[in-house]
Design a binder for these strands. Structure first.
Lengths: 112, 112
DNA sequence: ATATATTTTGACAGCTTTTGTCAAAAATAG
DNA sequence: CTATTTTTGACAAAAGCTGTCAAAATATAT
């Protein structure tokens, strides 16, 4: 049995912070959640602090585990990766806008 | 001496295509441009066709070489990386928007 | 068509990065 | 203080990236 605690997620948080908040809200030790993900607790500790990467499958499993929408965590995970890719780039915002156009463009005109 | 040819770059092109267009506009063989970048021509061939990555320094050198704005090629390069990171993701556009918010957010409030 | 130049391909080795494991150290809770 | 949890860093294995090379394929020119 886990505690039912109302928890408000902050969109600007990176996924690591969000995971930590979710885990602490339920007062679960790293050990427990790590076991569920089948990884070492040291890795989960690092994931929560942004020192290690988490993969897509693990994000999805966590969404189920913590009963939050998959989309919420996936968007957080993806956007973290984008932000990481753009770190220290002055052209970050321009690149994001062009990327958006490119994706819209190729979605409209599927290749082949 | 290189030919002076008016060339129009297409924003939606990936960087590889743009490089190829620039190179062909000047009628230069892979060999020549590759030598300038100090890489094997096989790699440049792959870069132009999107099979290999190009790094930041190489992008900047190419901008100088082809006399186009650094920003133009860097934005193309960065946005390609973002698109690559998001390939096959249905949440791509949402992730881009959140990434934009995150970057604006942390730029306004520099940490520490 | 032949000869020449250019481009593409794939195998390979070396290097870097990523990933997970582990145990000890540090921090926190009771 | 004791017990529990979290963090840290060293390590090895696995995966990924980079450049080199030569042969195969393609394109160009005569």
């Amino acid at each position: 049995m886990t505690k039912a605690v109302k928890i408000y997620l902050f969109k600007m948080d990176n996924l690591g912070n969000t995971i930590r908040k979710l885990r602490e809200a339920k007062e679960l030790p790293l050990r427990t959640v790590a076991a569920y993900l089948d990884i070492d607790q040291a890795i989960l500790s690092k994931i929560e602090r942004g020192q290690r990467k988490i993969n897509r499958d693990q994000v999805i499993r966590l969404a189920q585990y913590f009963e939050v929408k998959e989309e919420t965590l996936l968007v957080s995970w993806l956007s973290d990766k984008l932000v990481y890719e753009l770190e220290d780039e002055e052209l970050a915002l321009k690149a994001l806008q062009v990327a958006e156009e490119k994706i819209k463009y190729t979605t409209l005109k599927p290749k082949k």
